[in-house]
Structures are given as structure tokens and as C-alpha cells.
Amino acid sequence: WVQCTKPECRKWRQLTKEIQLTPQIAKTYRCGMKPNTAIKPETSDHCSLPED
């Protein structure tokens, strides 16, 4: 599990088994990010989705 770092969101998201949760990902994670590439989402507001 990882928490969105966006102050107005802070929702918890479940990561897939393939993703290694590192301190860097935990510090920078935003809803919809692909942690294995550290690319921020380009599409709609993933923070608007219900918490996992």
C-alpha cells in the first residue's frame, strides 16, 4: 500500500506484487502513477477515484 502525496487527496492505493515500494516512491507517489517508471499520470484525475 502507498498513500497519495497530493495534500488534498491522501488516499491509499494498493500496489501490484511486481512493484517494489521504495522510500522514493513513498515520498512522491500520486494516484495513477506508474511507480516502475515514475511517470505522473497524463489522463484524468486519478485522485477522484474511490480509495482502494
Rank of each mutant, 00 (worst) to 15 (best):
K40C: 09
A26E: 08
S48D: 15
Q3L: 03
G32F: 00
L49D: 07
T16S: 12
S48P: 10
P50V: 11
Y29F: 11
K40E: 15
L15T: 03
H46R: 11
Q24T: 13
P7V: 05
C31S: 01
K27C: 06
R10C: 13
Q3E: 01
C31Q: 00
A38Y: 09
T16R: 12
K17I: 00
R10A: 13
I19D: 08
L49N: 08
N36Y: 13
P23E: 05
D52Y: 13
E42V: 11
L15Y: 00
K11D: 05
L21E: 01
K34W: 13
S44M: 14
T37Y: 09
C47K: 10
K34D: 15
Q14K: 07
I39E: 10
A26N: 07
S44F: 10
K11F: 00
E8K: 12
S48T: 13
M33G: 06
T28W: 03
K27G: 08
S44G: 13
A38W: 10
K27I: 09
C4W: 00
D45M: 07
R13G: 12
L21S: 04
K40A: 13
D52N: 14
P50G: 11
S44A: 13
C31D: 04
E8H: 11
I19Y: 11
T16G: 15
I25V: 09
K11G: 02
R13I: 05
W12G: 04
K27H: 14
C4Y: 03
T37K: 10
N36W: 09
D45Y: 05
K34S: 14
E8M: 06
K17F: 00
M33S: 09
Q24N: 15
C47E: 13
D45T: 09
S48F: 08
I19P: 08
E8V: 00
E51R: 07
V2G: 05
Q20N: 04
Y29E: 05
G32C: 11
A38H: 08
S44T: 15
M33W: 13
W12Q: 02
C31A: 00
I25R: 04
E8N: 15
R10K: 13
K34Q: 06
T22C: 09
R10D: 06
E51Q: 06
L49P: 10
T5D: 02
W12A: 02
S48K: 14
Q20V: 09
T22Q: 02
E42K: 13
P35G: 13
Q24E: 15
P23I: 01
D52V: 05
M33E: 07
Q3H: 05
R30T: 15
R13W: 07
H46A: 15
E42Q: 04
I25A: 08
C31E: 02
N36G: 15
K40H: 15
K17A: 14
C9E: 09
D45E: 11
E51D: 14
C47P: 05
P7H: 06
T22A: 02
K6C: 03
T28E: 10
I25K: 05
R30N: 06
K6I: 11
Q24Y: 14
L15G: 01
T28G: 04
T37G: 13
C4R: 00
E8S: 15
R10N: 01
E8C: 03
E8L: 03
W12H: 12
Q24S: 09
Q20T: 07
A26C: 09
H46Q: 11
N36E: 11
C31L: 00
K40N: 12
L21Q: 00
C47M: 10
K6A: 15
W12R: 03
C47H: 03
P23L: 04
P7Y: 05
T16D: 12
W12P: 01
